[in-house]
Amino acid sequence: MEFDRELDARGLNCPLPILRCKKALAELNPGQVLKIVATDPGSVKDFPAFCKQTGNELLSFSEADGEYVYFMRKRA
């Protein structure tokens, strides 16, 4: 999937992945896509919850080798 910016949140624990994500989104234009790579297992529930509450769109989620990869589209 194409993306405009990547956020490396590996090794960070709650709530840092969400806070860094919020910061990264602030630097994107509406509609642009942020890729996030995290290792915090809590992020699996937290990113969907973040999106649901902020109106940003979670385009995809996948897991491989203990890493969680998210693609998020910034809200219009």
Binding site: C14, P15, I18, L19, C21, K22, F50, Q53, T54
Partner: peptide, 11 residues
């Protein structure tokens, strides 16, 4: 601080 910063991130 965790709750305050996260809530702020949730607008």
């Amino acid at each position: 601080f965790i709750l305050a910063s996260t809530a702020a991130a949730l607008d």
